[in-house]
């Protein structure tokens, strides 16, 4: 059986979680990849030998996110089956970010959708200084929404006021822009990215996500937060939310999710994601974008 993701531990205890799907030009989260990823995370959390983790890619790109064939199938899957798949990923990402060992993503190329969501579950993200690299959550642009924690982690790492509209629009960023939003730890020449990530791991043995800290709040004062959403909601309707079911669901995930700790927030995002896959209009939009892209 071919391996999609390998896990190799070096003499310093640094594990390299390397995505290199032999059957595909790009790395994607397929059912098989999700299972492999979960097994590796279990190994990472339980192994005493592992003291830090690098997430890398053997492809030209870092990660293309969820396999769109799999996502197409989500629309026919039962809510129960989908809940099981999505919470598997949720638990793997959450276990990784709370494993007590520093985790850094080495972003050598495009990191999109679920691939970027995986990188957001790392404690640090280092990207190559190449303006052609695209980073972000483009799901909404094809009528979908993030479901691997993207709405929650992105709007916690970067100020929600700045990224909410990007998540809703499915905007992607070049590395410098992503860095200016706070989404990347550093942007450096391609040949130094891996070394920088290793250096960061050595210097940050007690890394944890900011939202795991006591007293953390993802929102600013209640009035500013509420007013932001007054304006956002009106703008979404004005700009055609009635025809874009993902708009309301993403906005809800942000509005409610940011008011609660990460775990219920991640469950909430999954419920909104499943809700979107119950919507025939969303399926149509996905198929149109999917085939348009392939044509």
């Amino acid at each position: 059986m071919s391996t999609i993701i390998s896990l190799n531990v070096d003499a310093d205890g640094i594990a390299e979680l390397r995505w290199d799907d032999p059957g595909s030009k790009v790395n994607v989260f397929s059912a098989a990849a999700i299972a492999e990823f979960g097994n590796h995370v279990t190994e990472i959390t339980s192994s005493k030998r592992i003291t830090g983790v690098l997430i890398t890619s053997g492809k030209k790109t870092f990660h293309a996110g969820a396999d769109l064939n799999m996502v197409s199938g989500f629309f026919d899957a039962s809510a129960e089956a989908l809940w099981s798949i999505m919470t598997d990923v949720m638990q793997s990402f959450y276990a990784l970010e709370t494993c007590g060992k520093p985790v850094a993503a080495v972003i050598n190329g495009h990191a999109l959708g679920g691939g970027f969501e995986m990188a957001l579950a790392a404690h640090a993200r280092f990207a190559a200084n190449d303006p052609a690299i695209k980073l972000g959550l483009p799901e909404a642009a094809i009528g979908l929404m993030p479901g691997f924690g993207g709405t929650q982690r992105m709007a916690r790492i970067a100020p929600y006021q700045k990224v909410a509209k990007d998540i809703l629009a499915g905007t992607t960023f070049d590395p410098k822009t992503a860095q200016s939003l706070g989404l990347l730890t550093d942007v450096i020449p391609a040949e130094h990215v891996c070394q920088a990530a290793r250096g960061w791991i050595a210097a940050n043995r007690n890394a944890e996500q900011p939202w795991m800290a006591r007293g953390y709040s993802a929102t600013d004062d209640a009035q500013t937060f509420e007013r932001f959403f007054h304006r956002l909601n009106a703008g979404l309707t004005r700009d055609g939310a009635d025809a874009k079911p993902q708009d309301k669901l993403i906005a809800e995930a942000l509005y409610h999710g940011l008011q609660m700790p990460i775990e219920p927030a991640l469950r909430l995002e999954i419920r909104r994601f499943i809700e979107l896959t119950r919507n025939p209009a969303a399926y149509q939009t996905l198929q149109q974008s999917f085939f348009a892209r392939r044509a």
């Binding site: 409610h256 700790p261 775990e263 219920p264 927030a265």
Partner: peptide, 11 residues
Amino acid sequence: KASVGALAEVS
């Protein structure tokens, strides 16, 4: 308590 309560995610 939002970190442990099952209903915490409901609006």
